[in-house]
């Protein structure tokens, strides 16, 4: 395809995009968030040290979103409340995030509103905590929501105290608006990029073997797609490259260099994608909240795209039905 039409499209998209949900997009794309500041009020991350010092802060709500059941109950950060990602944050019948009513009830139970500082953390490198941050952001809870840098693992590794008692907080009066569409990419958005009808970038954060099409799913995970490979035009930067060995997120300068090497520098809107959209929330958080790039998460991810009929797919490994 010649370059000119693509540029034209980009221009058109650039003009049109801000018109759709401009208000909700504003916080994520705000350039002020680009420089990660040390002040916990400004930064999207809080350190374990900061959190331990501020455990008793009045307007602080600590929320654990872990994958493994029983982890929270057997010891959590003092004052933390539990959110079960696969029932609390989703619609359990149709494949969707929790609707406004359900989310309102959850936020009220957790005592969360727009003025409280919410610190999310969890096991598994904060994957689901980041996913939780993405869900909260869609309901307008953006700047007051932080991730605990290094998550549960770092807190435990530093031998900081855990608690098994139940936390009781006063319910909030939060009422969820309709979820903002600006932080979530849909199948149609991704397909438009794949067909080069729209000039955006897709960041695929799965493992190189999944990306190339050698395997459909990571080891030990059910193959939920019919085809292997990736969405045309996407680039591969596995999510784990954004973190240090201790699980903390790398410095903004390192992150900028990491993504710039893959051609992602924030000049174009970005769509993050993985298998079911949860690991990609981690990269969404990094791009959107730490670097201040305009990023959306595609939660349909490969389990939607890789099952769709008649869409273009790149399969570098040349596998057929996941085999040779």
């Amino acid at each position: 395809m010649p370059r000119l039409p693509a540029r034209l499209l980009a221009l058109v998209a650039g003009i049109l995009l801000p018109l759709t949900g401009a208000a909700a997009q504003e916080p994520a794309a705000r350039p002020g968030a680009a420089a990660a500041k040390d002040d916990a009020k400004e930064s999207p991350l809080v350190s374990t040290e900061w959190l331990e010092k501020n455990l008793d802060a009045k307007s602080l709500r600590i929320v654990e979103v872990s994958v493994e059941p029983g982890v929270f109950e057997r010891g959590h950060i003092p004052g933390a409340q539990n959110v079960v990602w696969h029932t609390d944050l989703v619609d359990t019948v149709s494949r969707d995030i929790a609707g406004p009513d359900k989310f309102t009830a959850l936020a009220r139970r957790l005592g969360i509103d727009r003025t409280t500082t919410v610190v999310l953390y969890g096991d598994n490198n904060n994957w689901f905590a980041a996913w939780g941050a993405w869900v909260l952001a869609q309901y307008g809870l953006v700047d007051n929501v932080k991730l605990l840098d290094g998550g549960r693992r770092k807190w435990e590794a530093e031998k900081r105290p855990l608690d098994t008692r139940t936390t009781e907080v006063a319910a909030s009066t939060f009422t969820a608006p309709a979820p903002s569409p600006a932080l979530r990419a849909r199948f149609g958005d991704v397909l438009a990029v794949a067909r080069k009808e729209r000039d955006e970038q897709i960041l695929d954060i799965r493992s190189p073997d999944e990306f190339s099409g050698k395997v459909i799913a990571p080891p030990g995970v059910q193959e939920l797609a019919i085809r292997a490979g990736h969405i045309p035009g996407s680039v591969n930067v596995p999510w784990a490259k954004a973190v240090n060995p201790d699980g903390t997120i790398k410095s903004p300068a390192e992150l900028k260099a990491l993504y710039a090497a893959a051609g992602i520098d924030g000049t174009k809107p970005i769509i993050t994608s993985c298998r079911i959209g949860e690991r990609s929330s981690h990269s969404w958080f990094v791009l959107s909240r730490i670097l201040g790039y305009q990023a959306r998460n595609y939660d349909g991810s490969w389990t939607e795209y890789g099952n769709a009929v008649g869409v273009p797919v790149v399969n570098l490994a040349g596998t057929v039905w996941g085999g040779k």
Partner: peptide, 9 residues
């Protein structure tokens, strides 16, 4: 205990 949830594991 009255909700739809079961205690962990």
């Amino acid at each position: 205990p009255s909700g739809t949830r079961l205690p962990p594991d």
